[in-house]
Design a protein around this nucleic acid. Sequence first.
DNA 1: CTGAAAGCGCTTACAG
DNA 2: CTGAAAGCGCTTACAG
Lengths: 328, 328
Amino acid sequence: MDRRPVTLEEVARIAGVSRATVSRVVNGVATVDRELRQVVEKAISTTGYTPNRAARSLVTRRAGAIGLVLPEEGRTVHDPYFGRVVSGVLPVIRPLGVQLVLTTGDHREVVDDIRQHRLDGVILIHTHGADPLPRQLIEANLPVVLAARPVRPMSITYVDVDQAAGAALAADHLVASGCRRLATITGPLETPAGQDRLRGFRDAVARHGLPEAVVVEGDFSREGGAAAARRLVDLDVDGLFVASDLMATGALPVLRNGGRRVPEDVKVVGFDDSSPAVECDPPLTTVRQPVEDMAAEMARLLVERVERPDRPVSSVVFAPTLVVRRSS
Amino acid sequence: MDRRPVTLEEVARIAGVSRATVSRVVNGVATVDRELRQVVEKAISTTGYTPNRAARSLVTRRAGAIGLVLPEEGRTVHDPYFGRVVSGVLPVIRPLGVQLVLTTGDHREVVDDIRQHRLDGVILIHTHGADPLPRQLIEANLPVVLAARPVRPMSITYVDVDQAAGAALAADHLVASGCRRLATITGPLETPAGQDRLRGFRDAVARHGLPEAVVVEGDFSREGGAAAARRLVDLDVDGLFVASDLMATGALPVLRNGGRRVPEDVKVVGFDDSSPAVECDPPLTTVRQPVEDMAAEMARLLVERVERPDRPVSSVVFAPTLVVRRSS
DNA sequence: CTGAAAGCGCTTACAG
DNA sequence: CTGAAAGCGCTTACAG
């Protein structure tokens, strides 16, 4: 605070070399003479030198920071998913000396942050179909990674879980548990996740030679889950796949109040493995996304893109797993 | 990305003034002639100029960023509390052009980040008694704000809720609801929150002229709440204050399985108003901290401290409120 | 392999 | 009120 930090200049003076040489040692440039390197390293450690990032940024044109963009509503921050993303990203970028900056989804701000060299690129989570930000960033040729497959096909890097495979996991598990009369509460069918989970479930049911599942559209909310369950509770269904845990926590009390015991009368499988899945009664069997691993991959892809903007765009799809609990 | 961003230099050339003048306009220095200001503003908007932050940082010695330090375990990130802090901080610092950087509690890294001018100061959440970081930062005279009263008294800025007042709120509510035989499951008694909530509860019980409450120490975990509840379930208690919602979610099933109905036989009040409080059965009456407001205040205090390091240290304590739900 | 020098894009005394 | 100039602390061609 009070005393000025040590500069490259001082280290150079102490080591008896030029600033350029100290800079090379700091940045690990290989062409420095062994002995000289050691002298410099000694000077660095005795002075406790640590480079001024602003100065470096100014010449390298790199912020050394990436942004995690939150939807503007801000609701998402409370979502445990957000925490899992953060804990996946941090271990990847920290060793690289890259900072993680939290920003909201205001378009101007995000674009400005990148243009001002305050951010080298951004990770977008929870974007919806109408969100123009991904396309804007792409068109401005700014480094960006999406946390899910975009609603409309576009040339953008994303990391996702194989949604259809997750739904198939749920179907296979229900069938293996003896269920024959299946139903599903879907997500909103205009979202890729909503579509893919329905498709994966349906296909798996067909593969097992069972009659078509009853389908009720939901909206990923607790209330939506409850509403959908009310339309199912009097049907003769013995296996239910709910496309999100949150909807399932809405559906469970409706089933119970309707006299359908879980899992005795109807087995239930959710999706996400979020905290409500553990807290509800009975705890939910659910499809788990490897969110931390996915987030780590997003960070890696983004850093890669920042360093080599000319490389071809590629995306990564992870496999989900099934977590079995008492609801099935 | 491709085309270089506009610089102050270019704006100056277009406006026909010096760089200094443009800089003054950008920074809102009052002494610029009206007409000149307008010419400059026009040039800024036609060029879409936006200042390079690294260059500014280099000369002002301000990073324009503050850090939110997470405990190293990383567990905290999943805590909804964290999300509430973020959504409280962001609206305060965004208009100031200050970034929020997420970092882990590694001491060297935090101190380095500040010394490198990558961070102007930090907000520390979830520090525990043994954590040397707060003291280190204070001794290095670096701007820091704690999210709670420090375990040992020290000259540091913190924002907290009045814990004892919250516990008293719980006691008053239980008594007003007709409870006479009270008990409490405390937090760990080596923490300030654990101590203060117990003290506040006890004092309020005494104030009502009731016999001393039964006290069982917990540890703020769900399992700890369940374990503590086992020691209470056969006691003749009709009002229970649990010092955290998470512990309460552990205690509830134990009470139910022990034949104690909530709220008919025993009324239960938690603390935190976290998501488990809403999700458990029955939903919990609980003491709510205004976390977003507290976080906003932390941000304000930190920014203030960065700008005027010489001002006396002051802290802020907020009043809690009671949220009544079905458990009481 | 090493150093002198230019330059990154700003802000801010200092004159006028 | 305005401008010329110095300087913030680095990196990186360019010579040698």
